[in-house]
Amino acid sequence: MTLFAESRDTPQAARKMVCAALEDWALGALVDDAKLCVSELVGNVVHHAFPDDGLAVPGARRRIDVTLRKWPKWLFLAVADEDSSPPMFPLGENFSPELVGDLPEAVLPDAGRGLVIVQRLTDGLWWSPEELGGKTVFCRFDLVGRVLDGPA
């Protein structure tokens, strides 16, 4: 699905597409996690991605491509944009999850929290630069051993 960063309904359209596909594939138990992940990834494009010089067209809208692929053992979610800057993946735990609730908000990181959420909800998170510019951020849900036909 191709979306545009400047459209107000872009995150909602991405969530609806993910929800519809997962329900069609009898993967209802993954709907909530996958919708949150696509929201975070699309939101990162909307707020942080700007086309590379070679891809930038004055006055053009910023393109976002959302792809879902199901394999027997995995579900892949990919979000591509026209900015080849690497995403700011979390490198490790800054704070113990048990302590975060006790820390003042000013101490917690201002950026990168969305990718921490995606990292925690998925079984794999990575990115790849595109040959002509831009990048794709991928996440993987392992299907083996999950209850997959739960309520959406």
Rank of each mutant, 00 (worst) to 15 (best):
N44T: 02
V66M: 04
L77N: 06
L27T: 02
K70Y: 07
G54N: 12
R69E: 15
L22S: 01
F50V: 09
L36F: 00
K35M: 14
D32C: 10
A80I: 03
D24S: 15
G54D: 13
P58Y: 09
C19T: 08
D81L: 01
A20I: 12
V57K: 08
G92A: 12
F76M: 13
D83A: 11
G43V: 05
F50E: 07
A34I: 05
L30M: 00
P87D: 09
K70L: 13
T67V: 14
R62V: 08
D24N: 13
C37P: 02
A34V: 06
F95P: 00
V42G: 02
D83W: 11
F50L: 09
D65S: 10
K73M: 01
V18R: 00
L55D: 05
P86D: 11
L68H: 10
R62S: 10
V57W: 04
N44I: 00
P87S: 11
V57A: 01
V79C: 09
W74M: 10
V45H: 02
L91G: 15
N44R: 05
V79N: 00
E82K: 05
D83T: 06
A80E: 11
A20K: 09
N44V: 01
K35T: 15
E93K: 08
E82L: 10
E23H: 11
R62Q: 08
N94P: 07
F50T: 11
A56V: 13
D65M: 07
L41M: 12
R69G: 10
K70V: 15
E93I: 00
S96K: 04
L22G: 01
E82N: 06
D83V: 08
L75T: 07
D81M: 00
R61K: 13
A56W: 15
W25N: 06
K70N: 10
S39L: 14
D81Q: 01
A29H: 03
F50R: 13
D81I: 01
E93D: 12
V45M: 00
P90N: 10
V31W: 07
K73F: 05
V66R: 04
K35W: 01
V79W: 03
G59R: 04
L68N: 07
F76V: 12
H47E: 14
S85R: 15
H47T: 12
T67F: 07
E82H: 07
C19M: 15
T67C: 07
V66W: 05
H48T: 04
E40H: 01
A60N: 02
V18S: 03
L55E: 04
R69N: 12
P51N: 03
V46C: 02
T67H: 09
D53N: 13
D65V: 14
A26G: 09
V42Q: 02
V31Q: 03
L22D: 04
G59Q: 06
D52Q: 06
W74F: 14
R61W: 08
W71Q: 14
M88T: 12
C19S: 15
E40G: 03
R69S: 14
W71N: 11
P51E: 08
H47N: 13
V18M: 09
S96D: 05
L68A: 10
D24L: 12
L91S: 13
L55N: 02
W25H: 06
L22T: 00
S84R: 14
K73D: 11
L91W: 10
W74Q: 14
L27I: 06
